[in-house]
């Protein structure tokens, strides 16, 4: 690394240099990176997962289908083409119950169900989370603000092969009579990985 240059400035310059050279050499285009980022802002992101969870809260038969065959249930809904695309080829939902809390982790890297959740947040990729969540999940969750008692079984899913998991959390109290849109608005990416509760606005 060049001396006397801030680490982030250096990386910013180096990645820009790389991108520029790749365009010059005909490997990618000047639009490529922007189009990829745009895809995750508009088409594939946690807003899709939130709609799926909200629908499952309202429609018990859909919930059953979602848990039995996640891709087919998702295919029933109207989403942009690609819900079984990159990092979504084999997705599966697991449900929290009063007796079971699910937490998703990828100890080796950062596997994440892109079509329903978009790109993994920093905390999910942090080696500290990956190291600790698998061995002491309740302690980590407590630091994140989520208390899971020892009487509730914790299932930690370490993503290492084909499946990309997401959590169908329980519908929170105080949301009776809400529409699907209202419900989807409170579902966060963290809650769909089992790392947070949803907060019902007062």
């Amino acid at each position: 690394m060049t001396e006397n240059v801030d680490r982030e400035t250096y990386s910013a310059a180096r990645v820009r240099a790389l991108e520029s050279l790749l365009i010059e050499k005909g490997i990618i285009t000047s639009e490529t990176v922007d189009k990829v980022i745009d895809f995750f802002e508009k088409d594939m992101g946690p807003f899709n997962g939130a709609r799926i969870v909200a629908k499952a809260w309202i429609d018990p038969a859909f919930k059953e289908r979602l848990l039995a065959d996640t891709p087919s249930a998702i295919a029933e809904m109207s989403f942009p083409r690609g819900m079984a695309g990159a990092e979504g080829e084999n997705m599966a939902a697991v449900a929290n119950t009063p007796d079971v809390h699910n937490l998703i982790v990828c100890t080796m890297c950062s596997c994440y169900p892109w079509p329903v959740l978009g790109l993994p947040p920093y905390w999910f990729k942090d080696p500290t989370f990956r190291a600790r969540a698998i061995r002491e999940p309740r302690k980590v969750l407590k630091e994140f603000g989520l208390d899971v008692s020892e009487s509730v079984e914790v299932k930690v899913w370490d993503t290492s092969a084909q499946i990309r998991w997401f959590v169908l959390l329980e519908r929170p109290e105080g949301t009776e009579g809400w529409t699907e849109e209202q419900l989807a608005a409170i579902v966060t990416p963290e809650s769909m990985q089992g790392a947070a509760r949803v907060v019902v606005p007062a």
């Binding site: 982030e8 990386s11 910013a12 990645v15 820009r16 790389l18 991108e19 790749l22 990618i28 490529t32 990176v33 922007d34 990829v36 980022i37 978009g118 790109l119 993994p120 947040p121 920093y122 905390w123 942090d126 500290t128 989370f129 600790r132 969540a133 980590v140 630091e143 994140f144 990416p189 963290e190 790392a195």
Partner: peptide
């Protein structure tokens, strides 16, 4: 553990992701 919820913590990071 950090509970930083951003995907990209520096603006340059999205460029290498896209590449």
């Amino acid at each position: 553990s950090s509970f930083e919820k951003k995907v990209f913590v520096q603006p340059w990071e999205e460029r290498i992701f896209g590449i």
